[in-house]
Amino acid sequence: MNDPLGLINSGGFSPLDPLRGDRPSRPQGPGQTEGPGFADVLRENLAQVNKLQQDATTAIEDLQTGKRDDLETVLAATAKADNAFRMLLQVRNKVMDAYDEIKQIRV
């Protein structure tokens, strides 16, 4: 495989088989969880999105106060933060949908 730019499969997963790759193993049964749980992953992602947004805010502040003049990088940081937040919002909406769904179950 010729890959001079190192771009092929740079995400770490095979695009056609998302289940293969470097991921935490499945829990064996109830109470036996291995690797980080969903809450940990969510918290980690939340921290990453927060960091992207803080980076974007700092970049905009630096641009406005004249500390830097590379408009493109600042705009790219803003676009990244925007996209990451949208992604997080969609995950949150999915979680809330699932919660509502469970809430509807009659006991």
């Binding site: 771009l7 590379d70 493109e72 990088t73 790219a76 676009a79 990244k80």
Partner: peptide, 16 residues
């Protein structure tokens, strides 16, 4: 994930 965006931005900075 943001590879293509970063590459395009590097091109913009270079051309500027």
């Amino acid at each position: 994930m943001y590879n293509s965006l970063d590459i395009a931005v590097s091109g913009m900075v270079a051309q500027r």
